[in-house]
């Protein structure tokens, strides 16, 4: 929304400062060797979920989705991760976006998430990595209902941090 809003209402401001997304920032830090994640930290199978706003909606509105950056980072943090299917532009929404987490419709929101949970189960992942606060909150909130209490839900930058030697 901030990105759309800046372009729509404050286009002149975009000439006065730069902008960057979280996955681009993490790629930059790793490429400049300001941080050096190591792959030895996690052995279990992980998966990555494309949030609507970073992927499909960004591609539709601004011509490019952030698909490659998170995957490049996953490759640098994990030996063992798989894609969800379908993914990228055709990904299935988790059900936590668009403000649904703030509505009183918890049962409906939980039911909405069944397709996402089935995908994660089918992938056999023990760790679920994403970029979006809504996706993170939704999957963490409903995983118990789907018998997946042990699913480790992580922000991508949290994964990166845990793969650093401090």
């Amino acid at each position: 929304m901030t990105r759309s809003g800046l372009r729509k209402w404050y286009p002149e401001s975009l000439r006065t400062f730069g902008t960057i997304s979280v996955p681009e920032l993490l790629v930059k830090y790793i490429k400049e060797e300001r941080i050096k994640p190591e792959k030895s930290r996690f052995q279990g199978l992980a998966t990555y979920h494309d949030p609507c706003n970073f992927g499909r909606k960004s591609e539709m509105e601004f011509g490019r989705g952030f698909y490659d950056e998170p995957r490049w980072i996953m490759d640098r943090c994990l030996e063992n991760w798989v894609e969800l299917y379908p993914n990228k532009k055709y990904q299935t929404c988790c059900g936590g976006g668009g403000g649904t987490l703030t509505t009183p419709y918890d049962r409906e929101r939980t039911f909405y998430g069944r397709k996402k949970m089935e995908q994660i189960r089918a992938a056999g992942a023990q760790m679920f990595v994403t970029l979006c606060h809504a996706c993170h909150g939704q999957v963490n909130d409903i995983k118990k209902t789907y018998g997946m209490e042990d699913l480790d839900v992580k922000y991508l930058w949290e994964l990166v941090l845990e793969c650093l030697q401090i």
Binding site: S13, F17, L25
Partner: peptide, 24 residues
């Protein structure tokens, strides 16, 4: 929505910040 986005623009200008990390 415009007011909220405008607040971010004001921060960038008033504090002379070089880059904005997209919030969402």
């Amino acid at each position: 929505a415009k007011i909220l986005v405008g607040r971010i623009v004001d921060h960038m200008k008033n504090l002379k910040i070089k880059n904005l990390l997209w919030p969402e």
